[in-house]
């Protein structure tokens, strides 16, 4: 029974790999920067689940922190790059002057 469960989980890991490769196509050919940022965000979301699946396969709890950190870094970099596309600057410090 545990053999069947492990086989299902490894199949899911393979499908995640295929979808990362498919998203990388859009990251290469995307005409604007916004397309590339969207593809990057999707890859980050897939990587979070890949780390969760790997923690089942290696049977440890220690990888679960890594998925949280990947999620936070992906969100922060997406917000930073999109602010850069919009106005050309990331931080607006002298806004009121």
């Amino acid at each position: 029974m545990s053999f069947i469960i492990l086989a299902i989980i490894k199949t899911a890991l393979v499908i995640y790999g295929i979808s990362i490769v498919v998203v990388l196509l859009r990251m290469i050919i995307g005409p604007t920067t916004a397309d590339r940022v969207i593809a990057f965000d999707a890859i980050g979301a897939i990587l979070v689940s890949v780390v969760g699946v790997l923690s089942i396969i290696y049977d440890t709890f220690s990888y679960l922190e890594a998925s949280l950190i990947i999620a936070i870094l992906s969100f922060l970099s997406t917000v930073g790059i999109s602010r850069f596309i919009e106005g050309g600057r990331v931080f607006e410090s002298k806004r009121d002057r």
């Binding site: 299902i8 989980i9 199949t11 899911a12 995640y16 295929i18 689940s49 699946v53």
Partner: peptide, 9 residues
């Protein structure tokens, strides 16, 4: 988990 991977694809 398998359903989630299919949604990702």
């Amino acid at each position: 988990i398998l359903l989630g991977s299919i949604a990702a694809l």
